[in-house]
Amino acid sequence: MPSYVRTELRPGGFAVVWLERGPVNLMDLTMWQQLMTALQDLEDNQAVRGVIFASGLKRNVFTAGNDIKELYAPQTSMERYREFWVTSNVFLARLYRSPLVTIAAIKGACPAGGCCLSLCCDVRIMTEQGHIGLNEVALGISVPLYWGRLMARIIDPRTAEHLCKFAVLLPPKEAAAVGLVDKLVPSSEELLPIAEAAMIELLRQPDSGRTIVKSRFRDEFSHKWEAYPEQEWPEAWEMLASPPTVKALEATLQRLSGKKTNSKL
């Protein structure tokens, strides 16, 4: 199995989890499984109190989101899709309530699945170049229920609905203005050092009180989210296997591969 996720322990009680699936960190089943394993291992390590998620790629991208091949019905199966969808959402739900301090160090592009991963973190720090948002509608599919609800817990619900409904990808300054991002940094070279400094500062406080408060705010939502994918995937698969969605995703795949298409998507 290829390795797309690398964990690096740092002095001071935290780790950096690097996303390293070139060329743009598309999130397939293997990457989500490896993220789940990395999170579990860190939570089981009593010496680790926090984690930073970062891109290990040279390109200016945190992650380009879910691999469309996992959603394109002609190239996958109902069984594979179920495993993909349940695995990814269980990881995200558990990340959201993790007792660790969690920071997303967002380098550049951060649509869809990458956006949701960052929304699950306690703090989002982003470069001044890039974009972020839940843009699934532009691909002919819907924003997953709990992904949209999560955004509406973090920013104004009316703004969240507008961004999701119209597949808006916000540039960093606008994302910071609505509260989607907590801090901006001028360049990718400064991103990790600033994220590490933020982690060190947050870890100055003892864990006991913070973990209780985080649990009170997040556990109920997180547990409902974790249970929902088993209900969600059959209807989602029906949508993905429908001719209009297949056509829309096929056009997207052709566009990304550089092939000409008559689709207006």
Rank of each mutant, 00 (worst) to 15 (best):
G50V: 11
R21V: 01
M27I: 11
F53Y: 14
I52L: 02
P74E: 00
N45M: 11
D44H: 14
G50D: 10
D28G: 00
L42M: 10
L26Q: 05
V51P: 04
G12S: 05
R49N: 14
V61F: 08
L9A: 13
T7N: 11
G13R: 05
V61D: 10
I68S: 04
Y72A: 00
Y72E: 01
R6G: 02
V17M: 12
V17W: 14
L35K: 09
Q34S: 04
F53V: 03
T37L: 11
R21P: 02
W32T: 04
K58W: 03
F62T: 05
T63N: 14
F62H: 10
E20A: 14
R6Q: 14
G12Q: 09
V5C: 14
R10P: 08
A73V: 01
P11Y: 04
P23T: 02
G50S: 03
L39N: 06
Q34I: 06
K69N: 12
E70D: 01
S55N: 12
A73N: 02
R10Q: 13
Q34R: 08
L71V: 04
Q40H: 13
V16E: 09
F62R: 09
M36H: 10
M36P: 03
K69A: 11
G50A: 04
L35I: 03
L71E: 09
Q33V: 00
E20Q: 15
E70T: 00
Y72G: 00
A73W: 02
M36W: 07
G56W: 12
A15M: 05
E20H: 14
R10N: 01
R6M: 11
T63A: 14
L57W: 07
G56N: 07
G13Q: 08
M36G: 11
D41F: 06
I68P: 01
V17S: 10
R49A: 07
Y4H: 15
W18V: 06
E20R: 15
K58S: 07
P23K: 09
K69T: 05
D41P: 01
R6H: 14
T30A: 00
E8H: 10
F14M: 11
L42P: 07
L71C: 03
